[in-house]
Simulated assay, not measured.
Amino acid sequence: MTLEQDLTSALATFVAARSAGHPVLVASDFDGVLAPLLDDPSASAPTAAAAAALERLAALPPADVRLALVSGRDLATLAQLSGAPVGTSLVGSHGAEQGHVVAASADAETSDVEGTSSVERHPFALTPDERATLDGVRAGLEAVAAEAEGAWVEDKPSAAVLHTRRAGPGAAERAGDAARAVGARYGAHTMTGKDVVEIAVLDTSKGLALTRLRDELGAAAVLYMGDDVTDERAFEVLAPTDVTVKVGAGETAARFRVASVDEAAQVLATVADLLS
């Protein structure tokens, strides 16, 4: 599989931007980018090619490259489903949760992940008012889901999400409108993605999270790949010299586009080749 020449050239320029104390940051959404979209989200897994590319990047010197997954998934689920290698930064719940994958240790205060790694979480807690708002939002979405066969509600630490992928088109549209009304009623932060409406009690985004991570790592340049409308917030905050890649169809602020998860894996493999 061969990437378009303009994208390949941009990746070479991206890799060349690293310098002493300033690695490049390779960041990606998970679902729809590294893993195909499925009707059952709990069955998601990275493709073999994506998993292999992530391992190759994680094995390179941290002084040259840092790796991050940025997702709407809650942190624990993201870690479990992605199988991200040790050293990977994880951003969950659209930026509300943050942590990184470490080698498993019996005496470390980490959450277990299948295998030999664990997730070290950054501190996170809601205020009593935020917790009360989230309880109300969750109850409102459960009522919406009860009226739309196939719809269901996912709980996150700072949000509740209505999923409508398994609902009929008409029912999904009505449920989405009703879910957004719940968000407006509580004055919460509502995000609409592919067959989902997420209502959060914290004001965050993938763009804010990626900017924060870039600053923490002192990254010289950023590569970010995403497929959903929530990834546009990340595309929009990155610099024109960064590499932004939209996976799939749809309007986008990204500089480049690839057609599939297979081509997204090829982007990661190309970066690993250039860094090796």
Rank of each mutant, 00 (worst) to 15 (best):
L7G: 03
L7F: 01
A10K: 10
A12I: 07
A17M: 14
R18G: 03
V24N: 03
V24A: 11
G32Q: 05
V33Y: 00
P36M: 12
A45S: 14
A45Q: 15
V65L: 04
R66Y: 01
L67W: 06
A79P: 02
A79F: 04
S82H: 03
G83H: 03
P85D: 08
V86I: 14
G95R: 01
A96G: 10
E109C: 05
E114K: 10
H122Y: 08
P123Y: 10
P123L: 11
A143G: 00
V144Q: 03
A146L: 09
E147K: 11
E147G: 02
A148N: 00
W152E: 09
D155G: 09
K156P: 08
K156V: 10
R165Y: 06
A167R: 00
A175P: 12
D177M: 13
A178R: 15
V182T: 08
H189N: 12
T190L: 05
V197P: 04
V197R: 04
T204N: 05
G207R: 00
L208V: 14
R212N: 14
L217N: 07
L217T: 03
A219E: 05
Y224G: 10
G226N: 08
R233Y: 11
E236M: 06
D242V: 07
V245D: 09
K246H: 08
E251H: 08
T252N: 01
T252L: 04
A254N: 00
Q266L: 10
L268Q: 05
A269D: 15
L275T: 11
